[in-house]
C-alpha cells in the first residue's frame, strides 16, 4: 500500500497524543501523577495539539475535505466513521479535563471523572483507528489481531515517552513511570516482532489462481497489462518495497522506537537530574523518527489482493 505521509503522521501523532492524554486522565483518576497544575496543563495541551494536528492531517488526503463532516454518520458499519465519532466525542471529557486543571481546585472531583472518561475514550479511539486497517480482508498484513494490539501498545508507549519527558522537565519523580515505560516498550517490541514474523510466514488465502479462477497448481503470468501506464490501482495499492530495504528499515525502526528509548529511559534511573532531563528529552525525537519508520513500513509492506491481477504471485 502506498505510504501516504498524511496518514502516517495522523496515526503516529494522534496515537502518541491519545496515549499521553489517556495517561494523564488515568494518572488523575488513580492519583499516580503529581498534582502539579502547570505540568498537567502543559502535557494535556500538548496531547490535544498532537491529536488535533493528526486529525487535521488525515483530512488532507481527502478529495473533498469540506465534506468531512459527513464521515460521522455511518458508525453502524464503518470503522472509519466510528473513529470519527469517538475522536470527536473524546474532545468533550478531554476539554473538560484540561479546563478543570486550568480553572478549578486541584482536588476537584470533575478532574477525576473527566480523566476517567478521557482514558476510556482514548483507548476506544486508538482501537477504532487500528480497526480501520484490521477490518480489511483484502490486505493480509492488516487483517489480523496483531494490528489493534500494536496500535494500542505503540500509542501507550509513545505516550509514556512523552509523559516521562514532561515529568523530567518539571523535576517530578519519574522512577515508577520510567520502569513502566521500559516494560511497555519491551512488550510493544515483542508484539511488533511477532507481527513481522506473522506477515513474513503467511500470506493471503487469495492467490492468482483464485483471482482468475484457474485450477490450483497452475502458474499464472500477466502477458498483457490492461493499460500502458500505471493506473490509480497500481499507484495506490501495488506499492512494492525491496525486501532488503524492508529488513534494514525494520532494524532501524526497532532500534529507534524501542531499544534506544528504553536505554535512555533506563539511564534516567541512575543519573543525576541534569542528565536525567537530557536522556528523557532525547528519547522523544529518537522515538518519533522510529515510529514514523515503523508506520511507513506498516503501509509499504502491506500487499493488496488487487496485485494478483498485475502479476503478483501471492498477496
Amino acid at each position: 500500500m502506498n505510504p501516504a505521509f498524511s496518514v502516517i503522521f495522523f496515526t503516529t501523532a494522534s496515537g502518541a497524543g491519545y496515549g499521553l492524554l489517556g495517561l494523564l486522565g488515568a494518572g488523575s483518576f488513580f492519583s499516580f501523577l503529581p498534582a502539579d497544575r502547570t505540568l498537567m496543563i502543559a502535557a494535556s495541551v500538548t496531547a490535544l495539539l498532537l491529536i488535533t494536528g493528526g486529525l487535521l492531517s488525515s483530512t488532507f488526503h481527502l478529495g473533498h475535505p469540506e465534506r468531512a463532516w459527513r464521515a460521522v454518520s455511518q458508525w453502524r458499519t464503518s470503522w472509519l466513521s466510528r473513529e470519527g465519532v469517538s475522536s470527536l466525542v473524546t474532545y468533550i471529557p478531554a476539554t473538560l479535563f484540561t479546563y478543570t486543571w486550568v480553572f478549578c481546585d486541584i482536588d476537584n472531583s470533575m478532574i477525576r471523572l473527566s480523566g476517567l472518561a478521557t482514558v476510556v475514550l482514548a483507548v476506544i479511539t486508538v482501537f477504532t483507528t487500528a480497526m480501520i486497517y484490521a477490518s480489511l480482508r483484502s490486505i493480509h498484513a492488516w487483517n489480523n489481531k496483531w494490528v489493534p494490539l500494536n496500535y494500542l501498545l505503540l500509542a501507550l508507549a509513545t505516550g509514556l515517552i512523552l509523559l516521562n519527558a514532561f515529568l523530567a522537565w518539571f523535576a517530578a519523580d519519574t522512577v515508577g513511570l520510567t520502569i513502566v515505560a521500559i516494560a511497555v516498550l519491551g512488550g510493544s517490541l515483542v508484539s511488533k516482532l511477532l507481527y513481522w514474523r506473522f506477515i513474513d510466514s503467511s500470506s493471503s488465502s487469495s492467490s492468482n489462481a483464485s483471482a482468475i479462477g484457474t485450477r490450483p497448481g497452475s502458474t499464472v503470468k500477466l502477458t498483457q497489462s490492461p493499460h500502458s501506464q500505471a493506473n490509480y490501482l497500481q499507484q495506490e495499492m501495488v506499492f512494492v518495497i525491496a525486501r532488503k530495504h524492508a529488513r534494514k528499515l525494520r532494524r532501524i525502526a526497532t532500534l529507534m522506537t524501542f531499544v534506544i528509548p528504553s536505554v535512555l529511559l533506563a539511564a534516567t534511573l541512575f543519573s543525576n537530574s541534569k542528565l536525567n532531563v537530557a536522556c528523557a528529552t532525547l528519547a522523544v525525537p529518537v522515538a518519533t523518527i522510529g515510529i514514523l519508520i515503523e508506520r511507513w513500513l506498516f503501509f509499504a509492506e502491506a500487499r493488496h489482493t488487487v496485485a494478483l491481477y498485475y502479476g503478483a504471485q501471492s498477496a
Binding site: 482468475i212 484457474t214 485450477r215 497448481g217 497452475s218 502458474t219 499464472v220 503470468k221 500477466l222 502477458t223 498483457q224 497489462s225 490492461p226 493499460h227 493506473n231 491481477y309 498485475y310
Partner: peptide, 10 residues
C-alpha cells in the same frame, strides 16, 4: 479493464 494472462497447467 481487460487483463491478459498466460496460464500453465500442472
Amino acid at each position: 479493464r481487460v487483463h491478459t494472462f498466460e496460464v500453465t497447467a500442472p
